[in-house]
């Protein structure tokens, strides 16, 4: 890849008069020796799987394999359609769709890791709801996934994207940043605005720990995906309105690395701290595994 930081990515876009997705598609083709069409087709397949997962999660409302979660996506969608959601119907739909995909994940359905399975709801939540709202062709969204991928590529290589390494900020946080930046590009914002959206979003999830109850990708992961979709919309709106991230986004990514590295092991996906070690968290673990062992 010709970029390893967001500022390099932005500069490339400005020099070539191209979008982040243009750069990512070209570089992916060059790196793998495949045609741009083939690379695009694979991403289009992934978008189709994401949209299927949204539909499946809303229709079936099925329980997770552990039996702990399920059905919240439907509840939120009904509230979004029929009630008067405080967020407004569009943001509430994005939230419902994100929950839907995360519930499909927990019930052993098919999803696309974006960047991980634990954070797989945020990008589909933002993308599928935006497609419905703005009437975009699929190609717009597929390109958006390349923009999200370019942002994620920078975050992953300069910080981390797994909860075991850097806490939830690295999974859900990264997904929010990726969704926010991509949404800015899809809505016609400049690469500079997109990069600001990433920094704005990441700052809001710095320090978020990974503390899954019983070690499962359910509590609190699923609801955090719902919140994440809404935060991504908010960050994109701030950036499109002209709000800049006073701390440059690349520096925010470095802070994520610093904060994640300083996180105790208890708060990095080991289920030995945080929500997992509350009385209720421990009871659930005991019920699932028959003992209060390690998750």
């Amino acid at each position: 890849m010709r970029f390893s930081s967001l500022s390099q990515l932005k500069r490339l876009c400005e020099e070539e008069g191209s979008s982040m997705s243009d750069v990512m598609i070209a570089d992916q083709a060059a790196e793998t020796g495949q045609s741009e069409e083939k690379v695009f087709r694979q991403m289009a397949d992934y978008y189709r799987i994401m949209r299927e997962a949204v539909g499946k999660g809303l229709m079936e409302g099925r329980k997770s394999r552990s039996g702990l979660t399920g059905g919240d996506a439907r509840r939120v969608k009904l509230h979004a359609d029929g009630g008067e959601p405080s967020l407004g119907a569009d943001a509430a739909s994005a939230m419902a769709y994100a929950l839907a995909v995360s519930e499909v994940n927990a019930s052993m359905g098919r999803i696309v890791a974006t960047p991980t399975a634990g954070s797989c709801g945020i990008i589909p939540g933002v993308f599928v709801s935006s497609q419905e709202r703005f009437g975009w062709e699929d190609d717009v969204l597929v390109r958006g996934l390349f923009a999200a991928g370019a942002i994620g590529y920078v975050i992953a290589n300069n910080s981390f994207v797994s909860g075991a390494e850097g806490g939830c900020q690295a999974e859900v946080g990264s997904a929010i940043g990726m969704a926010a930046g991509a949404l800015v590009e899809m809505r016609g914002g400049t690469p500079e605005q997109a990069v600001h959206a990433v920094g704005l979003a990441l700052k809001n999830s710095l320090g978020l720990i990974c503390d899954p109850v019983a070690g499962l990708v359910e509590i609190p992961c699923i609801v955090r995906n719902g919140f994440g979709a809404v935060t991504a919309l908010a960050a994109a709106d701030m950036a499109l309105a002209g709000v800049a991230s006073a701390i440059p986004s690349d520096e925010v990514i470095e802070v994520m690395l610093e904060v994640g590295a300083a996180m105790p092991a208890e708060h990095r996906e080991t289920a030995k701290g945080g929500l997992a070690r509350t009385p209720t968290g421990r009871r659930i673990m005991k019920e699932l595994y028959g003992e209060e062992g390690q998750a």
Binding site: M43, L145, A156
Partner: peptide
Amino acid sequence: IIGPSMIGPSS
């Protein structure tokens, strides 16, 4: 980063 396409729940 975007992928793999997979059966959940954990990558």
